[in-house]
Design a protein around this nucleic acid. Structure first.
Length: 257
DNA sequence: ATGCCCTTGTAACAAGGA
């Protein structure tokens, strides 16, 4: 079973590259984030030609998550019980059964700055997500996506640059650790170049080319699934060339159960 | 090399991203 997650930064703008990537990588299940389209605007017909069913949850120009699967999509949930909003709930969580695996795609709020009300929203969203998982966690389960938190200082290219910024504060890291500590394993992809498993590089100032990135996209899995991982890779090829997302996909291969 | 910000909505910028 090949699993992947990718913040595409607009599924419409990324459609040619998404289709090419799907055709080449052939994941069985793909979690998408920042689709930036309402559900009826998702290019479901185009991905269906490659054999994928779609579950999309969108709201317009911002946010948006989706699941693509060629091993089934059942019991789909948009959002989760107790999910906070700003003030209304946003399209940041979608869950489905893909075969016998519960798969959740998440796009955690950015937070903007530690002083911004969106930062408190981010922390409350992560705390509510933990509560939701705690009451329902049973394997096999994967929760993956853009968590907008770098778990450690090793997960940013220069910790000094991020002093006082979001994504690295102890409160954010604690909130993420509390989710992981429910019993999930962090499946870290191999970087295909260099020794840092970054998944995001700002578009500006040639940061990708200098490998000045962050690891903020994560794949968390229950131990039964983690024990079946045969490989995990960050596909930096997808970050190259014309019209890329600013995030790279993470691709994880599991042996049969 | 991979190459120096992008996307959407709305009407020349504003907002958001991280």
């Amino acid at each position: 079973m090949r699993f992947a997650t990718w913040n595409v930064n607009s599924v419409k703008a990324r459609l040619p590259r998404l289709l090419e990537w799907l055709d080449g990588t052939k994941p069985d299940v793909l979690c998408l984030q920042e689709t930036k389209v309402p559900a009826d605007g998702f290019p479901a017909a185009e991905v269906a030609e490659l054999g994928y069913e779609t579950a999309a949850y969108g709201q317009g120009r911002w946010n948006g998550v989706a699941l693509l699967s060629r091993v089934g999509l059942a019991d789909i949930s948009n959002g989760f019980p107790g999910e906070p909003g700003f003030p209304d709930p946003e399209a940041r969580y979608i869950s489905a059964l893909c075969g016998d695996i519960r798969v959740i795609s998440v796009y955690v709020p950015n937070g903007r700055t530690p002083e911004d009300p969106h930062y408190a929203y981010k922390l409350s969203w992560l705390a509510a997500l933990r509560e939701s998982l705690a009451s329902s966690l049973a394997g096999p389960l994967i929760i993956a996506g853009d968590f907008n938190v770098a778990p450690t200082d090793e997960d940013v290219w220069d910790p000094a640059v991020f002093a006082g910024a979001t994504h690295v504060t102890p409160a954010e890291r604690d909130a993420l650790a509390a989710i992981r500590d429910l019993g999930l394993r962090d499946i870290v992809g191999r970087p295909l170049k260099g020794d840092r498993p970054f998944t995001y590089w700002d578009y500006r100032a040639g940061m990708f080319h200098m490998n000045q990135g962050m690891r903020i996209d994560l794949v968390l899995a229950t131990p039964d699934l983690a024990a079946r991982v045969t490989d995990a890779v960050i596909d930096r090829e997808a970050r190259k060339g014309k019209g890329p997302s600013d995030h790279a996909p993470i691709v994880v291969d599991f042996s049969p159960s």
